[in-house]
Design a protein around this nucleic acid. Structure first.
Length: 927
RNA sequence: GCCUAGGUGGUGGAACUGGUAGACACGCAGGACUUAAAAUCCUGUUCCUGUUAAAGGAGUGCGGGUUCGAUUCCCGCCCUAGGUACCA
């Protein structure tokens, strides 16, 4: 029988599905292991060959762990709320649920073809009411919680209410809005219900507040900061403007420090950790108040270099700063107004791009330096951002380059503050010297000056140590249809939660998926969209990241109707042990998930501070486009003559994308090319060596570039096992690489060789029970050890090579012994599950039992060779081969060496200075 | 600018804590089997010198250093990819 991947693979895929082979047993002595893939958004284009890379890696790992005796949870689902289905609905009127269903079915079909060991009985879809019921439930938990800094965790809002009732606002140390009131217990009791709710909203983790949002008019929705790239929307590239709106927000800033600290406890790629760190953007410094007597107010600034305070020669405010109006004197009003006007006209994009030109305007007012009491000028300039810190900076031209340029341009004083500063050409921010021109810190070092200054400022009530974060609270509303409804209704303008048993709040039907005439979100079109026919429901829906911020819990207990997951399931499966996905989610999904995980922990639903213990980023697979070269006539018009790549420089040509699926190893199938496009039907070719060779280029995989390779086509011709092995063989998992089908034959050949090991030349099954030789055992034990090492460090590409070497060795040895081959396919099973299941069955084992078999043991004895020749260098240069027993001790080896006449000849009679041993053998002789 | 990762044959890539650089695969060249093709198998394939060969020399982005020995460690530079930015 020949290796027939098609019948064999579908047979085993059906077997696994019918037998529930990959459902973990809930009651077991085995240790648990949770392997998770980032679930996909089911787009209409289906999977291309780049998508499954990470899924294949995690599947290999999951199958490996099962063979190693773990109880493995390896689920899959769909992040099925999202913009494309809604855009499609706007264009065609088809309900997004239908589009989504169709796309999911196609995804499922494609995924099934690859032979993944998912437990599909746990599948989740974020757009399914039985799922989003719990997304809404979690929103309710967040609404009903506040962050207590004293206990450093979130607590039910009831504990805050109780505190207010008994002690008033005193002693509450919360992360909250800035405009919270101060009141006594009786003061609280005198609040009306409305006033109480209004006050509590300032503390809730999910809260409503007017905030500046990234409004994208073209998409008709607000976008999160990470959905805006360089001032345009990530999706579609439409312009984004700043707009004030009432918005649901999540108080993620309360967790800034814990999100930062947690990064040290998890095993994630360094670049990803770095990205989250930057995103959170913690800066340790001080806030300092500069008094402005004219307006009887203070300007508060944030600085990370309080030690430079005696170098302050002016203050700069963002043009949008709230005090600018009051500070502007009559004489300066025209100038300030025109400057504000100019900056407001500049788009965010221009303002970011243009960091070279210095601009600003003097307000005419002065502030008092908190320590010297001197007057410093107050300016406005667009290099100060309203959105960071306090929107105001103390300018120290001698130590900050931006301040330096500003001071030079407007001819403001530059005061050196350190004896090591060199400020002829540029600012010098070094902290190495001792201070000068700095009153009581003169002569001190940086380490001494900072605490002294903070103490003095605190004494004067002009400043204090402060930590500032770049991260903002996350906007949690989208003016969109295809998302989770927020389980909230409004009474007298204030939000109230639905009751828990009223969930899920189902997404209502609408006539169109567009905003209403009055500019309300699509839900404004729903008929009678009211709570108890009386109170308006929230009209915005949740953002895309809501459903994905907790989904790993749902897999633990996906059918549970009473809880998001049972306490038993959550305490058994704990956190995700291995998470594989792309790095594009670094500051979105992966941050929000950590946030929600911490909230749910604080509220007592589980006990894991971090949701994803180990994370691997699979590299993106790019497309590799092929080109043909069309010869141009004298008028520069395209002819029907195409010239091969190597000869194209002899003609005037224009490159055209050609479908990579009619090109093999860069050689064009000219017959297929003629039917590729109607106008190529009578194409003629200038060949080289009888072939038409195409050019190539690495680009993004996309339909328009004709470089999309569909996994289904590969599986059709080579099989899923080949696809799996080849995707791993392509290179290191974490590295980005172009897809190139050229090498796939080698992997396919390998699988046929495996098949032939079990069969004789006539194709009959021919495995014998004879005792294996030492050489055969050695080949086997080498591969067992290698694969074990490789899988544990996710080096799948080197394993594939090792398999090839092993099979070549066994072929050479004509090995057809059961004891060897049976273990070989067990080791190969995670990589190529179909062919190994088939061979396992051919060996007479019970069908399907391979998944529960244990990984073969590796025996070191077979790896140790007793005697062999190996090279020895003299003074680092390769000189000779020695044949020595390995387990010699150093002294014996030395004496043998020195007595050996061959060796002496190489040493030229010189004395030996040193003999270098590595792992028990002589590597080098120094003379 | 800053942060992170990386730079090895015609190509993808290998070399685990410094120890025979180029495993394995593709491609290419030659050969066997075959009427032929497919499939399969064998040989060669870093570059330079050398008629084949024997042999020698160079060689892991560039320039230095440490070491008996460096793709690996250190210093300085160049380039590529990803992230990020008037963040005070």
């Amino acid at each position: 029988m020949e290796y027939n991947h098609q019948s064999l693979e579908s047979k085993w895929q059906k077997f696994w599905a019918a037998n529930g082979t990959f459902q973990p047993s809930e009651s077991t002595e085995k240790p648990k292991y949770y392997v998770l893939d980032m679930f996909p958004y089911p787009s209409g284009a289906g999977l291309h060959v780049g998508h499954p890379l990470g899924y294949i890696a995690s599947d290999i790992f999951a199958r490996y762990k099962r063979l190693k005796g773990f109880n493995v949870l390896h689920p899959m689902g769909y992040d099925s709320f999202g913009l494309p289905a809604e855009q499609y609905a706007i264009q065609t009127g088809q309900h997004p649920a239908i589009t989504t269903e169709v796309n999911i079915n196609r995804y499922r079909e494609q995924l099934d073809n690859i032979g993944f060991s998912y437990d599909w009985s746990r599948e989740v879809r974020t757009s399914d009411p039985s799922y989003y019921k719990w997304t809404q439930w979690i929103f309710m938990q967040l609404f009903d919680a506040w962050y207590n800094k004293a206990t450093d965790k979130a607590e039910p809002i009831a504990s805050l209410v109780q505190h207010f009732e008994t002690k008033g606002s005193e002693g509450v140390d919360a992360v909250a809005d800035e405009d919270v009131f101060v009141f006594t217990a009786s003061g609280w009791q005198q609040f009306t219900e409305e006033e109480k709710q209004k006050e509590l909203l300032k503390y809730r983790l999910a809260y409503l507040r007017e905030s500046t949002v990234n409004w994208c008019a073209a998409l008709g929705t607000v976008l999160a900061n990470d959905e805006v790239i360089n001032g345009v929307s990530e999706r579609g590239g439409y312009p984004v403007e700043q707009k004030k709106m009432m918005q649901w927000s999540m108080r993620i800033t309360a967790y800034a420090d814990r999100l930062l600290r947690g990064l040290e406890t998890i095993d994630w790629p360094e670049p990803l950790i770095e990205m989250q760190r930057n995103w959170i953007g913690k800066s340790v410094g001080a806030s300092v108040k500069f008094a402005v007597p004219q307006i009887n107010s203070d300007i508060e600034v944030f600085t990370t270099r309080v030690d430079t305070i005696y170098g302050v020669s002016f203050i700069v405010l963002a043009p949008e700063h709230e005090l600018v109006e009051a500070l502007t004197t009559e004489g300066q009003r025209t100038e300030v107004e025109s400057y504000k006007d100019r900056t407001s006209k500049k788009s965010e994009l221009d303002r970011m791009a243009d960091t070279k030109t210095v601009s600003g305007a003097f307000t005419g007012s002065f502030a008092k330096h908190p320590l010297t009491g001197e007057d410093v000028q107050i300016w406005i300039a667009d290099y100060v951002l309203a959105s960071y810190g306090t929107g105001a900076v103390m300018a120290v031209p001698s130590a900050d380059q931006r301040d330096y340029l500003f001071a030079k341009f407007f001819d403001l004083p530059i005061i050196p503050i350190s004896d090591t500063q060199e400020i002829e050409e540029a600012a010098d921010a070094n902290k190495n010297g001792r201070y000068i021109n700095s009153d009581f810190i003169n002569g001190l070092t940086y380490q001494e000056a900072v605490p002294a200054l903070i103490d003095r400022l605190a004494e004067l009530k002009r400043g204090k140590a402060k930590v500032n974060f770049r991260m903002r609270d996350a906007i949690f509303g989208r003016q969109r249809y295809w998302g989770e409804p927020v389980p909230v209704y409004f009474k007298d303008g204030l939000p109230y939660l639905l009751k828990e048993d009223e969930l899920p709040l189902l997404l209502p039907e609408v006539d169109k998926y567009l905003p209403t005439e009055s500019g309300e979100p699509p839900l404004g079109r729903a008929e009678n969209w009211k709570y108890n026919d009386q109170y308006e429901y929230e009209l915005s829906t949740m953002p895309g990241w809501a459903g994905s911020s907790w989904y790993w819990f749902r897999y633990m207990d996906s059918k549970n109707e009473a809880e998001f997951a049972s306490a038993e399931a959550v305490s058994y499966w704990k956190a995700v042990d291995l998470y594989i996905g792309g790095s594009e989610h670094a500051t979105g999904h992966l941050l929000y998930s950590r946030f929600w995980n911490k909230v749910l922990k604080d509220l007592g639903y589980h006990n894991e501070e971090e949701p994803f213990k180990k994370l691997i980023n699979q590299g993106m697979i790019q497309g590799r486009s092929n080109f043909v070269y069309r010869v141009l006539d004298n008028d520069g018009k395209g002819t029907n003559l195409f010239v091969s790549y190597g000869l194209k420089d002899q003609y005037k040509t224009i490159p055209l994308h050609v479908d990579v699926n009619i090109v093999y190893n860069d050689v064009l199938d000219t017959e297929k090319f003629k039917s590729f496009r109607p106008d190529f039907a009578d194409a003629e070719f200038v060949l080289e060596n009888g072939k038409y060779v195409c050019g190539s280029e690495v680009e993004k995989m996309s339909k328009s570039k004709f470089n999309v390779v569909n996994p289904d086509d590969i599986i059709e011709s080579y099989g899923a096992d080949t696809l799996r092995l080849y995707e791993m063989f392509l290179g290191p998992l974490e590295q980005a690489k172009p897809w190139n089908t050229n090498g796939i034959e080698g992997v396919y050949k390998f699988l046929r060789k495996v098949w032939r090991l079990f069969h004789d030349q006539e194709g009959n099954f021919a495995v014998v029970d004879a005792e294996p030789t030492k050489a055969e055992f050695k080949a086997l034990h080498k591969i067992i050890k290698k694969v074990e090492d490789d899988v544990e460090r996710f080096s799948f590409n080197t394993s594939v090579s090792a398999f090839m070497i092993c099979v070549n060795e066994l072929t050479e040895l004509k090995c057809n012994k059961r004891a060897i081959l049976q273990d070989l396919i067990l080791v190969l099973q995670p990589y190529a599950p179909h062919i190994t299941e088939e061979l396992w069955a051919l060996l007479g084992n019970e069908q399907g039992t391979i998944s529960y078999a244990s990984y073969p043991a590796f025996n070191a004895d077979y790896l140790i060779e007793s005697e062999f020749a190996y090279p020895v260098s003299i003074n680092g240069k390769m000189k000779m081969n020695l044949s020595l027993s390995l387990d010699l001790d150093q002294k014996t080896a030395e004496s043998i060496l020195l007595e050996n006449t061959d060796v002496q000849r190489y040493l030229d009679g010189k004395p030996v200075k040193k003999i270098i041993f590595v792992k028990g053998k002589i590597i080098n002789i120094v003379i």
